[in-house]
Design a binder for these strands. Structure first.
Lengths: 136, 136
DNA sequence: ATAATATTTGCAACCGTGTTGCATGAATGA
DNA sequence: TCATTCATGCAACACGGTTGCAAATATTAT
């Protein structure tokens, strides 16, 4: 599926900005912050526009968002089968302490959660912290 | 151990602000943001001072910090045996989708992590998401 | 108790991310 | 091609986080 088809399939109009940003996210092996996108594609668009584009992508289920340890949002493309509602419970994230890169990890089984009486668990989020292949 | 002893044992001087803030965190059953502390103890201190007090507590290993889904920091008292370095890998956090409260959960076993070749996992962070006992 | 020292506090000011409103320009469908 | 709907840029603001510096306070030594 081309990038344009991907955008249209989620009801988003095709524009230069959206095409370039989605392409960048697709090529990246890690989750990018808005600042990362601005650095990679300087002068492509106003920062408000970028904010809205990333926001649109997330709402449309094209990307998922993860909060990094500094509290800023990072975005990464979803698997093609992702939808906006339940794409988050399909994988965990790995964060490298050296380069601060965030990677997706699939195939992780969820541990049985033991919570106090009266608590209900709907979702288990897992973050792996360590060093990536590049940083050794 | 009294609050004052607790502060001194970590090399922190005892002041009204530190005593009140640590007491508040100790009494709370959930992790509090700086804004929460300001609301609970209005006019106790300047917001910069509060920021530094919470920062000191974390460095001293008196509290641990967790980033909530909005990307803001929340603080909760550690078990007395916690140190600044390894207090984070002793428990998971539970977040209530209704009241946004963050609670500590202990006794959770860590899942075996499957990561790509070349990756090294040093730590596994787990966040449970659901409804707390109060919110049903 | 007092003075000397080290730390804490408040203030002003700044940065980055996130966010809204509004006017303008561009993509789509008829 | 025209009308409509949506995307974009700009200005402006909210908020959390952060630093530097001078004044106030806690600790230590006299």
């Amino acid at each position: 599926m081309t990038i344009e088809e991907r955008l249209r399939s989620r009801g988003l109009r095709v524009t230069d900005i959206r095409r370039d940003v989605l392409h960048l996210l697709q090529e990246s092996d890690r989750a990018l912050s808005q600042a990362d996108v601005e650095r990679a594609l300087p002068d492509l668009a106003d920062r408000v526009t970028l904010f809205r584009v990333l926001h649109n992508f997330e709402e449309a289920g094209l990307v998922h968002r993860v909060i990094d340890p500094q509290g800023t949002s990072r975005y990464a493309t979803c698997a093609p089968t992702c939808s906006a509602d339940h794409h988050h419970d399909m994988h965990a994230h790995f964060r490298c302490t050296a380069c601060d890169g965030v990677f997706c990890v699939t195939g992780l089984e969820q541990p049985a959660a033991v919570v106090p009486k009266g608590f209900t668990v709907h979702e288990v989020r897992i973050e792996l912290v360590g060093r990536c292949a590049t940083c050794g």
